[in-house]
């Protein structure tokens, strides 16, 4: 809102004065659905056979084996440190790796999406 219009609550003139989002009208507290919820309800409807919707065009999973890169430098990494589970490429990297504090190593794992214990 610009300063001339003052508070944000002031309705611009071009807006209808009585408008209420229909799906919000009964209860102001209700939150908007997330995309995930929307597409899961959309998917559950009895659509015609050949209907294409949002979730049906997701990219397929990768069929190629994923290459391993060093978490620190990004170089191809043949080794993994069993303690931190970080990947590294050279012995110099290992030297820096063992000196890293916990939050950094955890950060690298989380970035790679490998922070879950199971995976």
């Amino acid at each position: 809102m610009s300063a001339e219009l003052g508070k944000a609550e002031v309705r611009p003139v071009f807006k209808a004065t009585t408008f209420q989002h229909t799906s919000k009208s009964n209860n102001k507290k209700r939150a908007w659905k997330s995309l995930k919820q929307i597409i899961s309800t959309e998917r559950s409807l009895p659509w015609p056979e050949d209907y294409v919707h949002y979730s049906s065009i997701n990219a397929p999973p990768s069929f190629k084996p994923s290459e391993k890169f060093s978490d620190l430098s990004g170089l191809p990494a043949p080794y993994t440190d069993p303690q931190t589970r970080l990947r590294f490429a050279t012995k110099e990297e290992y030297a820096t790796l063992i000196g890293l504090p916990m939050d950094i190593t955890a950060g690298y794992l989380a970035l790679r999406g490998a922070s879950s214990i199971v995976g």
Partner: peptide
């Protein structure tokens, strides 16, 4: 390497833990 490493994510989404295929594969 970061200069090339981050855009490479488009071709290798698994670098960020996504299981989807990358740009070329799709």
């Amino acid at each position: 390497i970061e200069r090339y490493r981050s855009p490479e994510l488009l071709f290798k989404p698994y670098m960020m833990g996504s299981s989807e295929a990358g740009l070329t594969e799709v």
